[in-house]
């Protein structure tokens, strides 16, 4: 059900074939400056924004969620002020959230690389899968001498390996 209006105007799209229901919907990789290094989508029927705006909104959501969880953390007394930028690994982070239509899994590396995987809400714990994707990134992107850090990833090997891995994700 939709409470915040607006989406009624978008015509419903055909349902996703059930065989693909467990596969990933989209994936984002951001660097620590908020630049989207790679964006992939496998089945996404709804687009409310242009791709650039969509990336900005996603990065903003993750940033705010991080400051939210840092401040909310019930196990820590010294939490500082809300909204103060946190270094990677500092403060209480989160690894996933779930809505009725999708599940978003999130990982941040110590260097500030953020990997986001959006899957069906029934998907299980994907922390290990994200680590594997991070390994792919290290192997095929970081170790590529022709890659300039901070630019969009155009590595053929990375793309094919990633596609294959996410397609086989249970």
């Amino acid at each position: 059900m939709q409470f915040f209006g607006g989406s009624d105007t978008i015509s419903p799209s055909p349902p996703i074939p059930t065989g693909l229901a467990n596969n990933g919907n989209m994936m984002y990789v951001f660097n620590r400056n908020g630049i989207c290094l790679i964006y992939k989508e496998w089945n996404r029927s709804l687009r409310t924004l242009s791709s650039q705006q969509d990336h900005k909104l996603m990065f903003g959501l993750l940033f705010s969620l991080k400051s939210f969880t840092t401040k909310m953390d019930p196990s820590n007394v010294e939490k500082g002020n809300l909204g103060v930028p946190q270094l990677p690994g500092q403060g209480c982070s989160f690894h996933s959230f779930r809505t009725n239509t999708y599940k978003l899994s999130f990982m941040e590396s110590p260097s500030g690389i953020k990997i986001i995987l959006v899957t069906s809400p029934k998907a299980g714990d994907l922390r290990e899968s994200l680590k594997y994707i991070y390994n792919l990134y290290v192997e095929y992107v970081v170790k590529n001498p022709l890659y300039t850090p901070g630019t969009p990833i155009r590595s053929e090997l990375f793309n094919t390996n990633l596609d294959q891995y996410v397609k086989n994700l249970a």
Partner: peptide
């Protein structure tokens, strides 16, 4: 509200469960 905008399919009603490191 933002999580509804980012949904890949229609009919998203927002975050139901957020799993953080400590809660």
């Amino acid at each position: 509200a933002i999580s509804q905008q980012l949904s890949p399919v229609v009919g998203c009603a927002g975050i139901e469960l957020l799993e953080a490191d400590t809660f």
